[in-house]
Nucleic acid binder design. Sequence first.
DNA 1: TAAAATTTGACAATCGATTGCATTTTTTAG
DNA 2: CTAAAAAATGCAATCGATTGTCAAATTTTA
Lengths: 344, 344
Amino acid sequence: MSSKKRTTIYDIAEKLNIAPSSVSRALSNSPLVKEATKKLILKTAEELNYKINTIASNLRKGQSNTIGVIVPRINQNFFADVIAGIEEASYRQGYNLIICQSNESYEREVQCVNTLINQQVDCIVVSLSVETTDYKHLESVLDRNIELIQFDRVAENIETLKVLNDNHQASMEAVSHLIEQGYKRIALLEGPQNLNIFRKRKEGYLDALKNHGLPVIEELMLANAWTTELGAEATRKLLSLPQPPDAIFASTSDFAALGVLQVATEMNFKVPQQLGICGYSNENFTEITNPSVTTIDQHSVYMGKTIANLFLDELKNTDTSVAPKTVSIKPKLIIRNSTLKNGK
Amino acid sequence: MSSKKRTTIYDIAEKLNIAPSSVSRALSNSPLVKEATKKLILKTAEELNYKINTIASNLRKGQSNTIGVIVPRINQNFFADVIAGIEEASYRQGYNLIICQSNESYEREVQCVNTLINQQVDCIVVSLSVETTDYKHLESVLDRNIELIQFDRVAENIETLKVLNDNHQASMEAVSHLIEQGYKRIALLEGPQNLNIFRKRKEGYLDALKNHGLPVIEELMLANAWTTELGAEATRKLLSLPQPPDAIFASTSDFAALGVLQVATEMNFKVPQQLGICGYSNENFTEITNPSVTTIDQHSVYMGKTIANLFLDELKNTDTSVAPKTVSIKPKLIIRNSTLKNGK
DNA sequence: TAAAATTTGACAATCGATTGCATTTTTTAG
DNA sequence: CTAAAAAATGCAATCGATTGTCAAATTTTA
C-alpha cells in the first residue's frame, strides 16, 4: 500500500526528537552538525525512505537547478543530438532539463519562453523558429537575469552567449571543393533568409564563387528549398533549364540534398559525373545513399556539451558580469562520392 | 537594467491596496472576485510585468504539472519521436516535460528516477535501459503514488500502465512475408534477451517458422547483434557458413540491417535475389538505401501521444483506482525492395 | 576553578502562491 | 428603513526546506 504522505524533514526531526533545522543541515552535510548526529539522521532518513522535496528547496533557494531548452523540433537529428549533449554535460552537475518544441511557430516559441520563466529555470537555451523575426521575448528573459544562450539559429543583434557553427566558412569550403572538382555552374538551394544560418551559407556560397572568379547566376539560386519535397521540386526546375547546373549545393539540409539525388536519378543525370551534390548536416543517411553524399558535419553533440559548459562556467565567476561571448565551432566538410567528379 | 526582484502578487496587492489573496484569485480567474477588480488587477499585473512563480504555486498545490521521461538515448529516432509525441500532446494541457537519458545504464536509470521523484513530477514515463533487470526503483515510484507509464521496453511483471508495440505480431508478419517470398533459410539477429521487446521478436520469428513448417536452425540465430557494426560482424559469420542463409531478419534495428546490407554488398550477395533483408524501426534511411530496406514502422510519434493521453485521461477519473492497462499499438510492415525476391 | 572559546542545536522568518474561514460590503426582500 | 442573504474581500495558516541568530552545552585555556 502506498503511504498517504511523503516523509519530510519534520518527520525525521520528530522521530529523533531534534530540530528540523538540524536535519536539513545534516542532509546537506553541513559542518555544523556533529558526525554522530549526522549519521543517525542519515540512517533514519533512509529508513523512512525520505526524498527531498526539490520544489520546496528551490523555492527557498530562489533557483531551480533547471535548464530550459527550446528547439523547433525535438525529433530532428541535429537538435536531438544537441539536446543529448546538453543533457550529458549538465546532468553531472545536478541540473535538469526541461524541453520544449516551438514547432517552427513564433507564437509557440513565445509561450515556451513564458513557461520556462514561470518555472524559474536558471538558464534558457534556444534555437529560433523559422517564423521568429521579433525578439521581445528574448529580451524579457534577459530582463529577468536568466542566463540566455542562443545556438545555431540566433538573433545576431541580441547580446547573449551564442554557440554557432561557422556557417559562412563551411559553406565556402563546400563550394570551393565543388569548384576544385571542376564544377562550373553551381546551383544553390537556399533556406529562409530571416534565419542567420541560411544567410551565412548564402554569403559563403557567393564568396567562394567570387574568390574563384566565377560569375553569380541568378537563375541558379532558388529560395526556400529546405525539405526533401521542396528540394526535389527545385531540382526539377534547375535540371530543366536550357543550361542546367553541373552541381547543386543544398545548403539547407541533407533532406533537400536527398530530394536532389532522387530527381537526378529519375531524370538520368549521372552523379557525380554530370551533377555534383552537396548537402548540409551529416544526417546518418548521407553515408548510405547511392552514391553517398558529401555534406557538412556540425559536431552537434559536442555543440550541446559546449552550451552546457558555457552556462556552468558562467555560474562560477559569479560577480563579474558576463561579456556576451560567442563560441564558434568549425563544422567539417565530409567529402563523399556525390562530388568526386575527378575521383580522389 | 534588470530589476533585482521579480514582481510577486504582494507587489500587486500593495500597489492596489488590496489583499494578496484577491490578487491570487483574480489571476486564476476565480468567480469570487468582482469583474472590475479583476480587470484592474490583470492590468496592473501586466504593467508590472508579473509572471507567476510556478515553483511556489506547485509547492502549495502539491503537484508540479510536470511529466518526467526517461529513455536510453534522446538522440535515437524512435525515442526522439516518442518524446516529440508526448510533448505535443501534454503541452496543450499545460504540462511540462523533464527529459533524462539513462545511456543504457542501470545505475543512471535509478538516478533519473530519484531526480524525478525529488522534482515531484506527476508522472514518470520510462523505457528501460538494456542493463536493467532489477525493478525496485520502479516500485518506489508506485509507492509514492506517482503515475508510472512504461513503454516499449517494459518490465512485464511490474503492474503499471504500458504502451507497447505488438512485437510478436510484427515479427511474425515480417518473417511470414519472407517465407511467402520464397526464402527458406532465414537467419535472425537477436537483441539482448533481458529486454522484453527482443524476446517477443524472437518468439514471433520462431512461431512464424513453426506455422509454415520450417525447421529452426540454431546456427542461424545470432545473439547481440544490435548495432551496425555488430550486425555486419554477424552477417560475415552467417554468409561464410557452408550453408549460408537466404534471408536475414535484423530484428534488433535498422542499424543492424544496414550492417547486413553493407556486408552483403561487399561479399557480392545479390539483394534481394540471393539474400533478403528485413530490419526493424523504419528509420528514415531505410527508404533510401540501395536497395531500399523492408522494415517495421512503430508509429513512434503516435505512441508518444498515446502515452500522454493515457496519463491525462487518468487524471480525470480521479477516485477510481487505475487498473494497470496495457495499450498495444500494431506496428506496420513496410515492404520494400530488399525482400522482393518475386517482384510484387 | 573561573573565564573564554568553541561546538551544537533550537527558534523563527522566509521563499510566493493558495485557500478555508472570517469579516466587510453590497444587494435584496420584507 | 431594517434585517437577512449574497457577494466581495481580507486574514492567516500552509506547502517543505533553508538559514541567520542566539542560547545552551561542551571544551579549552589561563
